[in-house]
């Protein structure tokens, strides 16, 4: 795959929010204002790029059985670094994002890309994938936030818009409005991409990312692995 395609696929064709439907919680929670959406998008992008690079670099070192704890430690480390930097140098943004900044640790996009891409690709490709997915997440958040803040609050990035301020639709900045805008955006993106979502993996043992590590003897792959291990012992 071309390097540019790795980045571009995250923007629309495999957009993490509107196509892969990952990271819905922070999307709905932080898209009530453009500033918080921008801050959340940039923080998540930084963590995504860094964690993808480290996980890709360590892909041949991390054993399969402990890969998820390893990924979580790496991701949590980067999130805490971003959190400390924001608390020190951007305290107002840190306060605005509140609990959702720490929740980047369990953001499905980051863990999903670590598990689904970074652990099987080279460092450069993983970094580009992180960049593309991060920008895709940022753009999705910004689209949602612009619609919700402009129409729901009559303002843009905190600045009041004269006519809209008196004719806003308050439900859009509340939880039901978030779901409403989210649904409309998914429909729009689906129409733009002609509904061609990426091919899903099969749900049997072979399609399971934990197949090798789970140790279930019902799966032939795992059974072989167990036998090999027993022979080695």
């Amino acid at each position: 795959m071309k390097k540019s395609n790795i980045v571009l696929k995250g923007l629309l064709k495999e957009n993490p929010v509107f196509v892969l439907l990952l990271g819905t919680c922070p999307t709905l929670a932080t898209s009530t204002s453009v500033i918080s959406a921008l801050a959340m998008g940039l923080a998540a992008t930084a963590v995504l790029i860094c964690s993808n690079i480290v996980i890709s670099a360590l892909r041949n070192v991390i054993p399969d059985k402990v890969r998820i704890p390893c990924y979580i430690v790496v991701i949590a480390g980067f999130v805490t670094i971003v959190q400390l930097l924001m608390q020190a140098y951007l305290p107002s943004l840190y306060e605005m994002l509140g609990v959702y900044l720490a929740l980047i640790v369990v953001n499905c996009i980051i863990l999903g890309r670590a598990e689904g891409y970074a652990n099987s690709h080279k460092v450069g490709e993983a970094a580009l994938d992180g960049l593309g997915m991060g920008i895709g997440f940022l753009l999705a958040l910004l689209c949602m936030a612009i619609i919700r803040e402009v129409l729901g609050n009559g303002s843009f990035a905190g600045m009041a818009i004269p006519f809209l301020k008196d004719h806003c639709i308050p439900i859009l900045v509340q939880s039901p409005g978030g779901f409403l805008v989210f649904g409309i955006m998914i429909a729009l993106v689906s129409a733009l991409t002609n509904g061609k979502a990426p091919i899903k993996k099969s749900f049997d043992c072979e399609g399971c990312p934990s197949a090798k590590a789970c140790g279930k003897l019902t799966c032939s792959g795992c059974a072989n692995e167990e036998k090999e291990a027993a022979v080695n012992d």
Binding site: V61, I62, P63, K65, V66, C70, V73, V74, A76
Partner: peptide, 19 residues
């Protein structure tokens, strides 16, 4: 498994301490 996870935890802890 134990060694790799321990080393990763230690490296992350050092980075956090520096930050």
């Amino acid at each position: 498994c134990v060694a790799v996870l321990t080393v990763i935890c230690l490296v992350v802890a050092v980075l956090l301490a520096v930050t």
